[in-house]
């Protein structure tokens, strides 16, 4: 197992290296200049001279040849220093760190919601295939797939506003500090995102269970006289979980950086919003670090999925 971990860790290196090179140079190909965006985007009547812009470019190191910029950044990144945001001048790691807790919490809550809903619903739907139970659950999940989560978020907000004249808190409070305040802010985006997420997982679980129920070993179990409930719980569930775990894992990784619009709707100060802002501001260093962060997350989640696979499936464990 240790070797497996080491192996996977080493495999991360070329992946992330490729991502680093790609994102750096692709960003430089984009039109738009961080300094112009910062100084001219909302010019409050200041007559900003060319000299000021040039000085600012020099300060950010944008006047240097591309390869110099790259190696400076890359060398720093290797040592864990991702540089300073071109917009705020704060260390990129700081900017990300203060937003990560929120994004992680929403992702975790949405995942919990998805798992809690999807596993029982998907299983029920499969067992009662083509009955009214299945129809209702399928309606639930198809609606979840059809409704974009940001739209659902908007509906939630408007409902809260019109019914309770209340909207969730606008600023983040850590769960440790004040769980009630924390949940009253984050439960809504978690619901909005978790619904779609659980819909995807429910469908996956349903089709996975249906597929597993066709397997020969299920027939074997039935031929042994195992109760149908146990056939599903003991013989089908664990096998059916394998593809569901992948979906859930990748969806989780996506949530870390992908909640762009939903975070906007709920005014969440998360990684997704930071991403959008960084792109709008041509904050190159920030975008680079975020893309790398998300890649690391994807690689890590994949790793965790593999571990879960090994746990669920002895064929992988003993390989």
């Amino acid at each position: 197992m240790l070797r497996f971990i080491l192996h996977r860790t080493l495999l991360m290196v070329p992946t992330l290296l490729g991502v680093a090179v790609l994102v750096f140079f692709m960003l430089r190909l984009m039109p738009g200049d961080p300094v112009a965006t910062m100084l001219l985007g909302d010019a409050g009547g200041a007559n900003i001279s060319k000299e000021i812009i040039e000085a600012e470019r020099a300060r950010l190191g944008l006047d240097q040849p591309l390869y110099v910029q790259f190696f400076k950044w890359f060398w720093g990144a290797l040592q864990g220093d991702f540089g300073f945001s071109m917009w705020t001048g704060q260390p990129v790691s700081y900017e990300i760190a203060i937003r990560l807790e929120l994004s992680l919490q929403v992702a975790v809550m949405a995942t919990m919601l998805a798992v809690l809903l999807a596993l029982p619903l998907g299983t029920l739907s499969a067992i009662f295939k083509d009955t009214w139970i299945d129809q209702v659950i399928r309606m639930f999940s198809i609606a979840g797939l059809a409704v974009p989560s940001f739209w659902l978020g908007m509906i939630i907000i408007l409902l809260l506003l019109s019914v309770f004249s209340w909207i969730p808190p606008l600023t983040f409070t850590s769960f440790v500090e004040d769980p009630w305040e924390n949940l009253s802010q984050l439960i809504w985006p978690a619901l909005a995102v978790g619904y779609r997420y659980s819909a995807v997982s429910t469908r996956m679980m349903r089709s996975s269970i249906l597929e597993v129920l066709q397997e020969d070993y299920i027939r074997t179990a039935r031929a042994k006289g195992v109760r149908e409930r146990l056939v599903v719980a003991r013989h089908a569930m664990r096998n059916a979980l394998l593809p569901v775990v992948t979906v859930i894992g990748l969806e989780f990784a996506f949530l870390i950086g992908g909640l762009v619009v939903t975070e906007q709707v709920f005014n969440l100060n998360g990684i997704g919003k930071l991403f959008v802002q960084a792109v709008a501001r041509s904050d190159f260093t920030m975008i680079q670090a975020l893309v790398l962060l998300v890649s690391v997350f994807f690689v890590l989640i994949n790793f965790v999925i593999d571990m879960l696979y090994a746990f669920l499936d002895p064929r992988i464990r003993y390989h």
Partner: peptide, 20 residues
């Protein structure tokens, strides 16, 4: 005072709800 960074429709919502 607390200046909350919020824009677009969420800002209007926040005003409507009296959050700001």
């Amino acid at each position: 005072y607390v200046a909350i960074f919020i824009s677009g429709a969420p800002m209007v919502n926040a005003l409507a709800a009296g959050e700001v």
